[in-house]
Write a protein that binds this DNA or RNA. Sequence first.
DNA 1: GACCTGCTGCGGCTTG
Length: 861
Amino acid sequence: MMTSKGQQVIQQWYREKNWEQFPFQAEMMDAYLNGYSGLLNAPTGSGKTFALFLPFLAGFINQHPDTFKTQQNNGLLMLWITPLRALTNDIRKAMQEACNEMGLPWRIMTRTGDTSAAEKSALKKKLPEVLLTTPESLHLMLAQKEYPKLFSQLQVVVIDEWHELLGTKRGVQVELGLSKLKVLGSKSEVLNQKSKDLELKSHDFPLKIWGISATIGNLEQAAEVLLGNDFPKEQIRMVRANLEKKLDIRSIIPQNIENYSWAGHIGLKLLPEVMEIVAKSKTTLIFTNTRSQSEIWYHAILDNYPEYAGIMAMHHGSLDNELRNWVEAALHAEALKLVVCTSSLDLGVDFRPVDTVVQVGSPKGVARFMQRAGRSGHHPGATSLAYFVPTHSLELLEGAALKEAIKAKIFESRDPLLLAMDVLIQYMVTLAVSDGFKAEELFSEIKTTYAFADLSRSEFGQLLDFITTGGKTLAQYDEFLKVEVENGLYKVNSRRVAMRHRLSIGTITSELSIRVKWLSGGSLGTIEESFVSKLKPGNTFWFAGRSLEFVRVKEMTAYVKKSNSTKGIIPSWNGGRMPLSSQLAAVFRLKLDEVAHGLERDVEVKALKPLFDLQQKLSHLPQSHEFLIESFKSKEGHHLLFYPFEGRLVHEGMASLLAYRISKIKPASFSIAMNDYGFELLTDEDIPIEEALEDSAFFSLDNLIDDIQHSLNANEMARRKFRDIAHIGGLVFTGYPGQQIKNKHLQASTSLLFEVFSEYEPDNLLIRQAYNEALAFQLEEFRLRAALQRIQSQNIILKVIERPTPFAFPIMVDSLGREKLTTETLEERIAKMARSYGAEGVAEPAERKSRKPGITRKKGF
DNA sequence: GACCTGCTGCGGCTTG
């Protein structure tokens, strides 16, 4: 094959930079120059930015072989979208340097929330050749008058980190944005072709769209979603980097498994073992699952290993940005030996000096663990070293499952969202705010997206009604009449409506948080309203790794001063709940089956032998064709324990469902507890479980939805989902920047809307969406069905047990957490419970306790 | 207002 001028220039420039090291770069160049769009599957640190930027440059040079060094442009040629504004600056710098070195007089700019007003207006006057932006900022651009001009010269759009967006509403927003760019881009290219007679190989979609994605279970589908339904299949390419990353994963095995905790999730008992690893490593990242767990670990290390003061830092999403940036910079500068963090450090730039990663507690998913493990040994060819620290005994088996899954290359999928009406409504108003839209034109554009392929014309009609007249229900309220129709053009004429809309573009909603500031000025981060409300002036709490005395709260800010107290509570945040992924759960069940068959391949399984022996002795070790139920009586009542090993969300739904089905035989009220492995039904009456099991309907899928509606407070679940939907759909205004409307008011108004719709317009599309979201995300209906189906084909083993088994114990401890009034720490209560049940293997508060800091894992006082 | 272990991410500054 002839190499074009563009390729020669690029190759010459890139030669010193190890082009040959990444063979996929050549394949990418070829795909791009031949007019393909598609998906590049490459991890961070593989030069993926250049893999797309350089082919684009080569294409440009080919179009202007003699003049490219002087070629002036009057428009945007490349749009680069990333989910993280922090990434835009690094990418911009790298691109700009490349252009400078090649003598190309180009400007690379960013447009995000961080871009100054001056820069934004500069952008409006003269567009750069390359613009780096976020999905939200793209939509803000679409909300500008005469936005088509911005994109009239556009040749390629790159969606970086597509796997992070796919499966979220931000992803849907990207799909909608692309459907518009495709129309604008193709129109302009047709013009270009006529006037300049460009020689392009493909003409249907001259706008190229490329996604960059880490490995996920559904890459092919990821490409489909990105490109939409109308993209010609023969114009799509998948380029795979196929860079094998060597991983060395080791579980930390508690020395005496019989004395290791059966329950719990903090894992501090293994602190000495972890610190041994830290001491031997150059730089270590300790990943925890929650922000409060990071604080707890940081505090414990500082207390027990004071020599780490100054060379250790913490990083999580509620810490001030300035602090987080400092930590990242210090990591790069190799000034830190240890960072305790959450997944906030998952993203972003690579941390080259890191040689060891420690994961405390189950990462709950294969991909998440891979990504974290990959943070260490960040040189091409280097081996990543990651340790898994179980926080309770049985979790050790997850370590074995993780290794197995990684070996078998099992990855989670990101399921694309369908028919997110709230996002669509927002988009429609966005277009109405700028130049307005024609209904039929827009409908056909929207139909090209994967998300709205099944949108019916009548549903679209309902949405049009909704934004123009408020729909059936809200027609009397001016507040909701946003869009007007003039000669078939849907337009927003009110400046107030337009501005409010621009203020609320985006799909990320969050709880109102309180900023924590020193009395002397300077911000530490944010904590939640509910936590602050429990503080009294003079109280001490630990946050951002410091002991703080609460002074007062004023205008959404909690003022604090330094405290010398070594005791204090640690805030916890209400974040998302991460159930065990279905892929990891499946491998976990596989491991359990091996255990039941007496196979002891893994060190983890060997170590757990005493625990499994006890489980077998007291009850049973289920094989893969068996389903274990344990029945047990105590002074609290009748306990039933079920073990689907399917993740806690599914267990929550299944527990309510089965409780409901039992109560049809004999009325009773149940209390429910669950973890990722199973769930417990507890009632003070005798449960007719044998009778229930004889009925084939017990685990049946028949009447599933109906029974779920009866057994769970489906209304309440939908009402909670509706709150976010109402925000995104623009039904409530969250206030001007800096003066947010009180949470309680918003709560009340979305709740009211939910009721009004439910009563007068039950077929309302947003209400329907709320129920669907509750079913899909809260209940994981799909997994619930699959689990029920599996159980139906299994042999049910019902064991009457004398006392809690190793499987049962952690679940029953879980239910302790819900008791409202107690002054004991969880640890004390576990110990007490262990004594009262005579359960073996439950550690008394260990001898290490004297070294431990005065942390109680309690919320509030 | 509910959650009780629970991550991450963006954007906007003027009307009525």
